[in-house]
């Protein structure tokens, strides 16, 4: 069981909590305690807005162990509005085609069941979905 390592990362996983550099204001995700921009110590917590756009993506059907239940699924590199890029699955894509540059927003979803069955701990974490609700709301107004 990998309980401790998932538990340790819950802040980052559930809510995209990273860091901001107190020296140069760079936003950092995943947190790494040393600012990749200026090299100084950066441990101030920062919660990202969760909004970004697709940098690249692909769809995988030959999934590794623990991920077959959701295959085929789309993974992407998402460039967050605040700067950093994250690797994440896209979810709730619907009928629309995913495109580079597509605006997306973070949601918290099940990533997998630890132990690959109905008995293991559920691992929750960030995924991204198209900014569709905003479009629908605008269309309704």
């Amino acid at each position: 069981m990998e309980i401790p390592r998932h538990w340790r990362l819950k802040k980052q996983r559930y809510a995209l909590v990273g860091e901001v550099c107190p020296h140069c204001d760079a936003k950092i995700f995943p947190p790494r305690d040393v600012c990749p921009e200026c090299g100084d110590e950066a441990k101030t917590l920062f919660e990202f807005s969760g909004r970004g756009e697709v940098y690249s993506y692909t769809t995988l059907s030959n999934a590794p162990a623990g991920y077959q239940a959701s295959a085929p699924y789309t993974v992407a590199l998402v460039k967050l509005d605040e700067g950093p890029m994250v690797t994440a699955q896209l979810t709730d894509i619907g009928e629309q085609d995913v495109e580079i540059g597509m605006p997306v927003e973070m949601v918290t979803r099940k990533l997998r069941s630890e132990g690959d069955d109905d008995r293991g701990m559920l691992v929750y974490g960030y995924k991204f979905r198209p900014m569709e609700l905003q479009q629908l709301a605008a269309a309704a107004d």
Binding site: R5, L9, P30, T58, L60, N62, A63, P64, G66, Y67, S70, Y73, V75, V86, T87, A88, Q89, L111, R112, V123, G125, K127
Partner: peptide, 14 residues
């Protein structure tokens, strides 16, 4: 990166 890539179901192929 197991914590930030593989956990999302990523593989080298992707």
């Amino acid at each position: 990166d197991s914590d930030y890539e593989a956990v999302q179901g990523m593989t080298p192929l992707t």
